[in-house]
Amino acid sequence: MTATLEHVQSGTAVSLSGVSKVFGRGPQAVVALDGVDLKVAPGEFVCLLGASGCGKSTLLNLVAGLDAPTGGSIELNTSRPAVMFQEAALMPWLTAARNIDLPLRLAGFGKADRKAKVAELLELVRLGGAGHKRPHELSGGMRQRVALARSLAATQRVQGTDEPALLLMDEPFAALDAITRDVLQGELLRVYERTSTAVLFVTHDVREAVRLGQRVVLLSSRPGRVVQEWSTQDGAAEALTEEITARLREVISTHAKS
């Protein structure tokens, strides 16, 4: 976690081909995802963008293994993906440090090892002095940083691993106020630079997607399909934001009744 690794490496961390997900059966069935193809390279930061009901959270749950796809296949060349949700979902009976410690315990790390790693992760999210606090004593932004540290901890393995890490983020900053969100986006980029993890980040905020992602993938709603994707590496962010927003509006307009 110290060396800054070559970010976009060759190969694929995640590969989705023809993934579909149908909820319910018969006439009431809802097609959430329909033939989604998506590849994420190791160390790549991809933002999934879409309006409500485009199945972006569903897609994330499928990749996380919390749900099974109806059709198609998902191939992971990573260690078990770590997930961050819109709510921090910290265990309210554990201190910040013990929350980060939990996945390390579950992975079977030794006590001294865990202590060192927890301290390192707390420092990484700049919460060195708050390890002893309980979730209810922390602000929303601090809780989300603990959750980030916890999901990073969840990617670690006792033996160490050659497999790249994968972090799945489901609108993790959507419930925060604008100032905190802005700061946390910066924090996430900083942490991302210092780790070699790939990130699949779900959002409905175009500006956020363009700022964070190396690639932005737009999903349509009901059913969710990949509409278009952009690289943020070349070109001005402002122009790209406008272009993507226009396309997003177009996609949403097709759902108007008249």
């Binding site: 004593e137 932004g141 700061v183 924090e187």
Partner: peptide, 17 residues
Amino acid sequence: DLSKVEEGLDALDSPAT
């Protein structure tokens, strides 16, 4: 410096003990 901003936010937003 982001860390200063963050420290300020943490101090402002943390629930009062």
